[in-house]
Design a protein around this nucleic acid. Structure first.
Lengths: 343, 343
DNA sequence: TTTTAGCACTCCGTTTCTTCGAGTGCTAAT
DNA sequence: ATTAGCACTCGAAGAAACGGAGTGCTAAAA
């Protein structure tokens, strides 16, 4: 089952070539472009690689294309990290210098940067507010019976939610409750700010325990409801590739990528890993069976709070994409940190 | 230049048929389906209609397709408003019953409803905050030097902006300034809350005049910057139609529709009109030369604050779309009003 | 004068057939 | 173990043939 040096070399050449051209690679073409063996030898090796499951033939008299197994091997062992040109890193850096109006804006900009530079489709998950610490909560009266709850965390992320308020709580009391909650739960993780803690606490809060309880429940719930938790960019980039010259394929892809719930779940799952590469049928999503997803996580104060990634055809340029993700990860870390000068 | 009754009737039949089938309509097919004239007569009339510019022929031996001029006539004079089935109005009504967590959510839901029911692409403009009246402004400290400004208007719309704060203003003072501004400018139109008014006002505000001024400037500026002002839904619906079976056409369409700035401008312009129908080349956008855009405005307290619309191929079912928009306009009006019980 | 039947003609979309060439597997020579 | 040579395969692309829906025009019918 071990592949000897020559097989590896040939396989790598095939993958590299196929990533570039998207058309089956033949033995002759290979031997002419810098391979030191004759086409016949390569042909024999290709036959072997096919029986081993690394290559496939669209039809009898065509060249070979890499299988998912080949891509997996390529990603895990064979590829050498691409080197971004100075120009590219500068370009990338530029995206992060421009818009610094809050975490959300930066992440949106990140998605745009990723999709524009890779020419694939980019997804960025908004940070998971649960792991962050509460810095400020403010209730703003809207109408009788309704108020806007604004939560700000130490990561500089904010979240708005409309909540119901008992009629007998006036603006002044809302303000006092805001201050009380802020004081009590300052620097607690959002996920631990549960209703249990409320009862322990005396004063104004316990008098309004029911309200505060429902308020906190509402805050947690609203996070998962909010469909804006994923920023998508460059979905139409995929239409450039011959894989999607068929409109119906393009349609299924676009439909899948717009299922923000699924995308969020996917990224969330990936956020515990520094990097992930998911190839073709390894993907859970129906619509990504012919795609690969590459993700990277980002952290704030050392805690991973989210992830971002790129989706492309299985023959995507993994080396390049990974380099770009790594670069973005660094940039993003720096920028997000800059929102936290106080720490 | 006047079209007699028969010409009108024939033209209408052609438009109706072409909207359904998307393929050129021939004289024979027409005369067989309920027309009381022979194919020859119809043929002559069609030739006339062509010289008058209402019809076009893709090639010599094909049927006729309506020109933009024909659609214009159709929309302005000939079409009869479609009647939504009870089922459909109920379905539509359902969208508005479900999500009532704030104005933004409702409008997002509106976009989804529109695209799903029409099978075209829907756009909804978030309400223009400028014409609304300030109800509450709250500054929330983020880090030293930065704060989050949350603006709430009488329409229940909120807007978050990260602003810079001089280092010597502490959390308590931010709170006091918030209250002072809220008190001073309560019920003023956002667009009139300009820096000029600030100077007139004494007390805490004038002491921090520079800060308040820059704050207000920042708020105005940020509205136009914010790219989330347009909610898009069902962009991929267009790929269902034969007009977009060509991937490159699909690409240009999708690219255009994702230019949120342009879309916002388009809707903004349309928001002063109850309804608009823009056919083919009447559109300013490059990518909409083969599309039609139908919009309706929505109002809060009688003031038009935004608009929403549907984009489809020029042969879209105008009658149906207009009925749906009218229905949605009513529903939306009711729901938005319900956020304003106080008035 | 208006409408309609009839007819020759056009031209697109489809299908069928042919050709071309890149690629293969196998065998025999190196 | 490697490679040159050869017969074979099969899809992609082009060419030719066909069918049919539709037209414009003319002449007869209303």
């Amino acid at each position: 089952m071990e592949l000897d040096q020559r097989k590896l070399q040939i396989l790598r050449a095939i993958v590299d070539e196929y990533i570039l051209s998207a058309s089956p690679v033949g033995s002759k073409a290979l031997s002419q472009s810098g391979m030191k063996w004759s086409s016949a030898t390569i042909r024999n090796e290709m036959a072997d690689l096919e029986t081993l499951g690394y290559l496939a033939q669209p039809h009898t008299s065509a060249g070979r294309i890499p299988s998912e197994k080949a891509y997996r091997l390529y990603v895990d062992q064979m590829m050498q990290r691409a080197h971004l040109s100075d120009e590219e890193s500068k370009l990338l850096y530029g995206y992060f210098r421009e818009h610094v109006h809050g975490v959300d804006a930066v992440l949106r900009e990140t998605a745009k940067a990723l999709s524009e530079i890779t020419h694939y489709t980019a997804l960025v998950m908004m940070p998971d507010i649960g792991v962050n610490r509460l810095r400020h909560l403010q209730l703003i009266p809207l109408t009788t019976g309704k108020a806007l709850a604004v939560v700000v965390t130490d990561a500089g992320v904010s979240q708005n939610t409309v909540i119901d308020v008992p009629e007998d709580i006036g603006p002044e009391e809302l303000d006092r409750i805001s201050k009380a909650i802020t004081a009590r739960f300052h620097d607690c993780r959002m996920s631990t700010v549960s209703s249990k803690l409320v009862r322990e606490f005396g004063g104004e809060l316990s008098a309004r325990a029911d309200f505060v309880e429902s308020l906190l429940a509402r805050l947690c719930e609203s996070q998962s409801r909010d469909r804006r938790m994923v920023e998508l960019s460059g979905a139409t980039n995929m239409l450039e590739y011959p894989e999607y010259s068929d409109v119906s394929k393009a349609r299924t892809f676009l439909a899948t990528v717009e299922q923000k719930d699924d995308m969020y779940r996917m990224l969330k799952k990936a956020s515990s890993m520094e990097f992930t590469v998911t190839i073709g049928s390894e993907n859970e999503q129906e619509g990504f069976q012919d795609c690969s997803v590459v993700t990277a996580s980002y952290r704030v104060n050392g805690t991973p709070v989210g992830s971002f990634g790129v989706i492309g055809p299985t023959r995507m340029d993994y080396a390049r994409v990974l380099s770009i993700l790594k670069n973005v990860q660094t940039n993003l870390g720096t920028v997000l940190q800059s929102f936290l000068k106080e720490e």
